[in-house]
Design a protein around this nucleic acid. Structure first.
Length: 286
DNA sequence: CGGAGTGTTAGTCG
DNA sequence: CCGACTAACACTCC
């Protein structure tokens, strides 16, 4: 599930309940999900206090008083669920159909917090990971990512400059590349390209100046709308406040193969590009 | 039952 | 450099 808008939603929901809490236990039942030795996690997490919860690209960043930052990548199906001592739940990530309780059979990591709250990491496909990085090295670690599309620094000129190094790549593959631009995934690339009127297979080097500008504004518009609607949810996902992510209902092309285009009524096409299911309108997108 | 498809990313091969 | 493909894994849908 999680692309930029979903991770942003998760981070905003979890921040108020996690900041200021001290970690007292750290339990793992699938060590493959840890990118550092278990001993390091125990050493730098247990006893540490959480002082920040943030996001970079699709990573959740949890700043610790031990001088380390915990990086959590949810990949396809990762989910973070917080349960307070009163039993209140907040969660973010992929909904697991029919599995509402935590912990459950997909819970692989549990953080115990002072005061009785717990943070659970569930992951059906187990592609996600936890990684500890020294906070002072975080900036260096983040160099591999392109700019954040919802910040002021992200101008049309920046987008053009980032894409410039990949002239022969399809615009879809380029936008999926986190080194070009951080945070877009399969859904929002398809949606942004529809909004920009660009065929996903268009080569970056063939885009005109006006098309870069249209693409830039489309990316910003689609992503900010998705953040406002708390992201996209398949199935019956609900967040900890009982609300749904509703971008799914607003989508233009993703997952609409064969359905009439909302703009011109011709059927939405689906192909495979850059190894991903790709949805577009062959009439509205050129 | 079998095959296609699923929100990510790192890696290999040609 | 670049894209096609695969692998990591578990599950749903048709």
């Amino acid at each position: 599930m999680p692309e930029l808008p979903e991770v942003e939603t998760i981070v905003r929901d979890l921040r108020p309940v996690l900041v200021g809490k001290k970690i007292v236990t750290f339990k793992v039942t699938k060590q493959r999900l840890l990118k550092n030795p278990l001993g390091q996690f125990k050493k730098f997490m247990i006893g540490a206090t959480i002082f920040s919860v943030g996001r970079r690209a699709k990573l959740v960043l949890i700043g610790l008083s031990s001088g380390y930052t915990l990086l959590i990548h949810l990949k396809m199906t990762g989910q973070l669920v917080w349960r307070g001592s009163s039993g209140k739940i907040r969660l973010g990530g992929h909904p697991i159909v029919g599995v509402a309780a935590v912990p459950n059979r997909y819970t692989y990591i549990t953080l115990g917090l002072a005061g009785g709250g717990k943070l659970y990491f569930n992951d059906v496909r187990t592609f996600g990971y936890f990684q500890l990085v020294k906070s002072e090295l975080l900036a260096k670690h983040h160099l591999k990512f392109g700019p954040e599309p919802l910040t002021k620094n992200f101008t049309a000129a920046v987008l053009r400059q980032r894409l410039h190094g990949h002239p022969r790549v399809s615009i879809k593959a380029a936008l999926l590349n986190q080194a070009v631009l951080a945070g877009l995934g399969n859904i929002y690339v398809d949606e942004s390209l529809f909004a920009a009127g660009l065929k996903p297979s268009r080569r970056v080097g063939k885009l005109k100046s006006a098309e870069f500008i249209k693409l830039w504004s489309s990316i910003k518009q689609i992503l900010s709308q998705a953040v406002r609607t708390r992201g996209t949810s398949f199935n019956n996902y609900r967040d900890g406040f009982g609300r749904k992510g509703t971008y799914w209902e607003k989508r233009w092309v993703y997952g609409r193969r064969g359905e009439p285009c909302r703009r011109c009524s011709r059927p939405i096409s689906r192909t495979v590009l850059a190894g991903r299911g790709t949805h577009y309108c062959s009439n509205c997108q050129r």
